[in-house]
C-alpha cells in the first residue's frame, strides 16, 4: 500500500501545470492543481484508546513563539519542516505561523485547533490511556505532495516511533 498510489502521474501533472504557472508568473492558480487521489484506503487494526498512548499532530503552524523559528508562512511553495513541543505547554506560549486560514478563532481560543488541555482532561478521565510527551506540529500549506511524502511524513512517523505511541490524532486546519 502506497501513501500516494499514482505518485509519478501526480508529479508530472503538478510540474506541467501548477508549478509551471507559478514559475512563469510567481502566482498560484488552484484551478491547475490536482489533489492527491487514491483508489484504496489502507487497512488497520482496532484499538482500545483507554489502553493506548496517543500522539497529537496539528497542521496549524503552531510553534513555541519564544524559542522556535516560525514556519515560513509566506512561502508560496510551502514549508515542509516539523516542530515539536511538550504536551504540557502553556497555550499562551504558542503562536501560529500560517497564512492560509483566518486566525480569529485560535486568537480567541487556541483549543479550537489545539485542544491540549481538553486532551489532558480526557486522559485524566481514562478515555485516553496516555498522551505522548510531545506534540507534533507542521505547516499545512504544502502544495508539493512529493515533499510531504519524502520529508514531512517520515519525520512525523519517526517521532511517533521514538515516542512509542500506539495511535495518533490528526487535526488539520
Amino acid at each position: 500500500m502506497e501513501i500516494l498510489e499514482n505518485r509519478q502521474a501526480w508529479e508530472d501533472h503538478f510540474k506541467a501545470n501548477w508549478l509551471a504557472h507559478y514559475e512563469e508568473t510567481g502566482e498560484t492558480n488552484w484551478k491547475l492543481y490536482q489533489y492527491s487521489k487514491n483508489e484504496e484506503a489502507p487497512s488497520g487494526k482496532a484499538i482500545d484508546l483507554s489502553q493506548s498512548k496517543l500522539l497529537f499532530v496539528t497542521s496549524s503552524g503552531a510553534y513555541l513563539k519564544d524559542s522556535q523559528e516560525a514556519f515560513d508562512a509566506p512561502e508560496l511553495l510551502g514549508d515542509y519542516t516539523v516542530r515539536t513541543f511538550p504536551q504540557s505547554t502553556d497555550l499562551g506560549d504558542i503562536a501560529f505561523a500560517h497564512e492560509h486560514y483566518n486566525h480569529q478563532y485560535v486568537d480567541q481560543d487556541p483549543q479550537s485547533v489545539l485542544p491540549l488541555r481538553l486532551l489532558e482532561t480526557m486522559q485524566s478521565e481514562g478515555i485516553i490511556g496516555e498522551l505522548a510527551e510531545t506534540v507534533v506540529s507542521f505547516h499545512g500549506y504544502t502544495p508539493i505532495v512529493t515533499r510531504v511524502i519524502d520529508e514531512t511524513i517520515p519525520q512525523i512517523i519517526s517521532i511517533a516511533k521514538e515516542q512509542n505511541v500506539d495511535a495518533a490524532l490528526l487535526v488539520p486546519v
Partner: peptide, 28 residues
C-alpha cells in the same frame, strides 16, 4: 493530513482525523 492518516495506518499505527474538508479527504 489525509496522506499522513494513510501513512500512520500503513506503519501499523492507527490514526484518526477530523476535518471540515471532506472532498480532499475522500479523494485521498
Amino acid at each position: 493530513m489525509s496522506l499522513l492518516n494513510r501513512a500512520f495506518e500503513i506503519e501499523g499505527i492507527p490514526s484518526v482525523m477530523t476535518t471540515w474538508r471532506d472532498g480532499v479527504a475522500r479523494l485521498a
